[in-house]
């Protein structure tokens, strides 16, 4: 039964990866990465049961936590171009519609280390 579950998870992962590479906008890709993370949590859990070692679930818990935080962090970075606290409240830096703009300011000056 775990083989069937693993197979359906793999099919789902392939389809999500197709969307990840096709995705016309940045937000399609972020959405695909988020779903990919959710499915990966399931895959880790099912693989633990498949190999008879459910201890893998600790890794699955951690992956679920990191997946959520990374989604929020990616979105925050592309909206404010920085992850620090100060720059989060300057609305001038909202430029998410052109994520391919490579002319970023030097990041080390923008992130406050407090």
């Amino acid at each position: 039964m775990y083989e069937i579950a693993t197979l359906s998870i793999f099919i789902s992962i392939v389809l999500i990866l197709v969307r990840l590479f096709l995705g016309p906008t940045l937000y399609d890709r972020v959405l695909a990465v988020n779903s990919f993370g959710t499915v990966t949590v399931l895959l880790i859990g099912v693989l633990g049961f498949l190999t008879g070692r459910p201890d893998f679930l600790d890794i699955a818990i951690l992956y679920a936590l990191i997946n959520f935080i990374s989604t929020i962090a990616i979105l925050k970075f592309f909206r404010y171009r920085a992850l620090g606290l100060d720059s989060a409240y300057t609305d001038e830096s909202i430029d998410a519609s052109t994520p391919d703009d490579a002319s970023q300011p030097t990041r080390s000056q923008e992130i406050p280390h407090d």
Binding site: I4, A5, L7, S8, I9, I11, S12, L15, I16, V18, R19, P24, T25, Y27, D28, L31, A32, N34, S35, T38, V39, L42
Partner: peptide, 29 residues
């Protein structure tokens, strides 16, 4: 669960634009 997982993933491929794909991802999630 596998049925819904694959249906949601197919939805992420088939649905025409970003706003519709959000709902496909919702089925997976």
């Amino acid at each position: 669960g596998g049925f819904y997982l694959i249906v949601g993933s197919i939805g992420m491929i088939r649905l025409p634009d970003f706003w519709a794909r959000l709902h496909g991802a919702g089925v997976v999630d």
